[in-house]
Amino acid sequence: MSSPLAPYLPMAVALLVAGVLAILMPGLASLLGPRRPSAIKSMAFEAGSESTGPARQRFAVKFYVIALLFIIFDVEAVFLYPWAVNFQSLGWFGYGEMVVFAATLVVGLIYIWKKGALDWES
């Protein structure tokens, strides 16, 4: 007689192997890896150029606004896929709901565009 947990055995083994490797690989790398510290290796590296200014400098809020707007519109675009998959079964009601949803997105985009939130120069 088999246990009701038997189908989960392969997943448990995979998780166990992943956990062991996650601990084993960095541990072995730190123990066996070469250690040749130098002043050049200790310097901060920024895309191949030397660092200028302090690391804790202030950034304009514009960068965060653009990032948040990208995330908002990206997440809302994800909702289009399930709608497209179920398009035939939803009928005209589903089509109307998506028109309202897309219209809301367009109105929001026009609003932030008029506010100047997408201008890099200002």
Rank of each mutant, 00 (worst) to 15 (best):
A6N: 01
A6K: 04
A6M: 05
P7D: 00
Y8E: 07
Y8L: 14
L9C: 00
L9T: 09
L9V: 10
L9G: 01
P10K: 05
M11F: 14
V13A: 09
A14N: 08
A14T: 12
A14K: 13
L15C: 13
L15V: 12
L15E: 10
V17M: 09
A18S: 10
A18N: 03
G19F: 12
G19Y: 13
G19D: 05
V20Y: 08
L21D: 02
A22I: 03
I23W: 15
I23G: 07
L24Q: 10
P26Q: 08
A29Q: 14
A29R: 15
A29V: 12
S30P: 00
S30E: 12
L31E: 09
L31G: 07
L32F: 05
L32Y: 05
G33A: 06
G33W: 00
P34R: 11
R35S: 15
R36K: 02
R36D: 04
R36M: 01
P37E: 08
P37K: 01
P37H: 04
P37Q: 02
A39I: 14
K41Q: 06
S42L: 14
S42P: 01
M43E: 15
M43C: 10
A44N: 06
E46V: 14
E46A: 11
A47T: 14
S49D: 06
S49T: 10
S49L: 02
E50V: 00
E50A: 03
E50N: 04
S51W: 06
S51M: 03
T52C: 02
T52K: 05
G53Q: 01
G53K: 01
P54D: 08
A55G: 13
